[in-house]
Design a protein around this nucleic acid. Structure first.
Lengths: 344, 344
DNA sequence: ATATTTAGCTAAAACGATAAAGCAAATAAT
DNA sequence: ATTATTTGCTTTATCGTTTTAGCTAAATAT
């Protein structure tokens, strides 16, 4: 029941009869560099193994300024999209010898600031952040302060902050083109109010593809608020379906797509009989809904792994100030929610 | 661009012209105890505020042995059930001044051991763990070593390790009783192979309720493997539906219920026309499926908050060895997947 | 007038590791 | 034979706090 006393460097040193410095040198693999005798190296390593020594990271960190801790700030860890990312970040970080600390910003920039402060204070070696609206200056100041930092899922193109995200323009270009090829013309888009680049890129992808296909007159971008989404979504969909006689809707995020499904179910609008739709990111609902939902698949594995790779690289070469940009390509998963439109 | 130098205790001390000790005492609220003059306290606090001082936690921790870090080990953070828990743990931990480090064990006890070692090595003050099959001895040894530890979602009733989980027996008692009241008799259950208590309790809840209702002869407990779930589930459901002519199925976890829905869809078995079913935990699928799925709702907020409360209590009173047990009550959310059975 | 207490503060040690500088003995060079 | 170099290790300082013990001057007691 009593707390086992931890084995210290000193304990190992005493057991071999040498200084703690020597043990530290040997266990850090610098024996050659400090020309420690081979037999001595062997003795020390053996003793350390037998005594089951493991260094106190806090002490090591205080001395060296490194914690092998990575901070991950997402908007909401309970959002399956971000928890999926978290899992991959965790795996990759572990492989590289890091442990992950996470926090949720709730899309709020003051929260983000608070969380970053806390994490830096805990001594994290670097940060992976899903930035939220209005956080650009804040994030820039962290980056300017030479804290290793990588944005994920979203980015600030005007800055020299590294990021790993989806090629968002391509995502909606793909979906829009698919819908056009299926014969739809009156195609609307539902996004949300934000100045964040990932959403703006998705909107551009839709608009430019529509324009290029000569469907400019049908371009309709509806934006709902992130709070009170359900009510706003109902109104938006009511307008699109009943007033605008829209043939297909593209939802810009998973959450919007699922909320959209709830509303359409309430309105007793059938998919795809009454309207075609495209979602974003995988969701069991998309497969189990009466019709399977066509959606964009993000290569999460790649996006998250790249973010960690870039970050760890920055941590290890903090003297270099390189902007790494990783755009991953989206895939279109075609379901039965976007069938070929029957000609009149 | 240059790294801002952190403000140290010494900087504050120098600016006021006193010792670091005094500043430390004042900022830790021990001025009275050390009878520091009131004007001095005021001066120091003012200086610290103005200089925007915040203590280096690493140094503080090295000295005090506390990190204000909590380790959370779940089986898979990308599982929405656990990421929902993670979010609540995070919130409550933050309120109490802690930060959360997470890891996923993948239901593997060797992973669990490795992760616990890493987290303890990082100096976490305590652990919240979802234990997996076969990890009882391991977990017990951590607990015996006086590391503050709380189990969540699952527990080891034979030990004196604190936990916060659902009243699992009540959960299936509720569902089974509901089905019986709706007129079903041939009710089967699908769980998975494990020795873990939470599943065994759920099975007992079903069995004893069936027995008490005089439906003992209908008791059928099917167990699928956690790997290869889809294939095994197909076989199990085929047997239940086609051979055993079962009227209703209870799925013991969210994952099982969703997998079940996939299989039933493939088999073109309609719910509830061909079979009634009950799921576990909330899922958008349950609401958007053609029929809404009756399911057990776990009070996650309560379960997770309690876990943190218990843990922090243990951290602050490590001398007391109290076993705290928190069983939270399940709720039955009734959908259209379990309608009143029409009498013949 | 001297001894004792109290108020108000500081010096120094400690937490456990790592890095820089140093030092004796053995070997090589002149 | 004397000096210079190399080998193999140790001593000391350091990271930024907190805590223990102590120190000085003023206030009180004897």
């Amino acid at each position: 029941m009593a707390k086992e006393k931890r084995v210290l460097l000193k304990d190992v040193a005493d057991s071999v009869g040498v200084s703690t410095t020597l043990v530290s040198i040997v266990l850090n693999g610098k024996a050659k560099q400090y020309r420690i005798a081979d037999e001595m190296v062997e003795k020390v390593v053996k003793a350390a193994m037998e005594m089951n020594y493991s260094p106190n990271l806090i002490a090591r960190n205080l001395r060296g300024g490194k914690t092998q801790l990575i901070g991950l700030i997402v908007t909401d860890i309970s959002n399956p999209f971000y928890s999926a990312i978290a899992r991959i970040v965790e795996n990759r970080a572990n492989e590289l010898g890091y442990t992950v600390v996470f926090s949720s910003s709730d899309e709020d920039k003051d929260n983000t600031k608070r969380l970053i402060d806390v994490l830096l204070n805990k001594g994290v070696d670097g940060l992976i952040v899903v930035p939220c609206d209005g956080s650009e200056d804040l994030i820039k100041s962290i980056h300017d302060n030479n804290t290793p930092l990588v944005l994920i899922d979203r980015n600030f193109p005007e800055t020299d902050i590294s990021f790993s995200c989806l090629n968002n323009y391509r995502a909606t270009e793909l979906t829009t083109r698919h819908l056009i090829e299926q014969g739809y013309e009156n195609i609307a888009l539902v996004g949300y109010k934000t100045g964040m680049n990932h959403i703006l890129d998705r909107i551009r992808g839709y608009e430019e593809t529509m324009q290029a296909a000569g469907l400019g007159k049908y371009i309709q971008v509806k934006k709902v608020n992130l709070l009170n989404t359900k009510v706003e979504m109902s109104n938006v969909l009511d307008t699109l379906v009943n007033k605008k006689k829209v043939e297909a809707v593209i939802f810009l995020t998973n959450m919007l797509a699922v909320t959209g499904l709830y509303c359409l179910k309430d309105m007793q609008v059938r998919i795809p009989d009454d309207i075609a739709m495209v979602g974003f990111n995988r969701n069991d609902v998309f497969n189990l809904y009466p019709s399977t939902i066509t959606h964009i698949r993000q290569p999460l594995e790649l996006i998250a792994t790249q973010a960690v790779n870039i970050l760890v690289d920055k941590i290890n070469h903090s003297e270099l100030e390189i902007k790494s940009m990783s755009f991953s390509e989206p895939q279109l998963v075609v379901g039965t929610s976007t069938p070929k439109k029957k000609e009149i």
